[in-house]
Design a protein around this nucleic acid. Structure first.
Length: 253
DNA sequence: TCGGTGGCCCTTA
DNA sequence: ATAAGGGCCACCG
């Protein structure tokens, strides 16, 4: 009678390293990585059959591999010459079909935060509190910041579009200057948002449409100056007879 | 009036 | 259990 181990041994097929990597990759235990150019500079990016799993800007190849291994101790990593389909274009234009991402290993809270951040259009920003509200945890503003700080795939998931409620850009994995540069590159009206923020203005409304928005919402930016109304909070916007924009979903704090 | 700040909030390591 | 983290508000001089 043949033992189970004997039968398994009969089944075993010798694999080359690259074949083994291929198998591991298919079952999500190995990632490929390559270098890509981004608006924030040269980056290394890892991906597997689930999608993009890890991206870092400004690291040597060696320290990227170290960072990946540190984060995913049980996964193999092999170099590839080809970038995942659509990645280069998506990173350059910030547009197109959303890229697949691999967010395994993150908590539900962290995934919720990152998914919400994906909803912010190119050239616009939303406050941390907007994410918190959107995921049904209005008071977890601070935790939202922490979760974004742990975003494994910056740029792919645009955590740089989340800024402080007072109009400042706030912090960023790759540094504040990089965040500012990215947002300017995307065409966000950063100085206007900052000026309004300094004056305590959170929302911009239109006398003609009766709608109020976040100041960077593309709808808000089309409002003619003489029809523009400013509001410091939701209550004031309501008093002015305005209702929230369905596109940018302005939220209190 | 405005910039600095202590205290609070929530999640994760 | 505790501390720290990409925030925010109220309060203060």
């Amino acid at each position: 009678m043949t033992s189970l181990t004997d039968r398994l041994a009969d089944l075993a097929v010798p694999l080359t390293n690259s074949q083994m990597t291929g198998v591991l990759r298919t079952i999500g235990l190995a990632d490929s990585y390559c270098s890509v150019q981004t608006p924030a500079g040269a980056a290394w990016v890892a991906s597997n059959h689930n999608g993009i799993s890890f991206l870092r800007v400004g690291l040597t190849e060696q320290s990227f591999v170290a960072a990946f291994t540190d984060r995913f101790p049980n996964r193999a990593l092999a170099k590839s010459e080809r970038a995942p389909k659509g990645l280069t274009t998506a990173l350059r234009t910030g547009r197109g079909r959303p890229l697949d991402t691999d967010l395994r290993g993150l908590t539900e809270f962290q995934r919720d935060v990152l998914e919400a951040a994906r909803a912010i259009p190119v050239g616009e920003v939303r406050p941390y509190g907007w994410i918190a509200n959107r995921i049904g945890r209005p008071k977890a503003v601070r935790a939202v910041g922490t979760a974004l700080g742990n975003n494994p795939v910056p740029l792919v998931i645009p955590c740089h579009r989340v800024t402080r409620g007072d109009g400042n850009v706030g912090q960023y994995v790759f540094g504040t200057e990089s965040k500012t540069a990215l947002l300017e590159h995307e065409g966000a009206n950063l100085t206007e948002v900052a000026e309004l923020g300094l004056a305590g203005i959170r929302f911009v409304g239109s006398r003609t449409t009766g709608i109020y928005c976040h100041p960077s919402c593309h709808q808000a930016r089309r409002i003619t100056a003489k029809h523009r109304i400013l509001a410091s909070d939701e209550g004031q916007a309501r008093e002015l007879g305005l209702r929230p924009c369905r596109t940018c979903e302005p939220v209190p704090r």
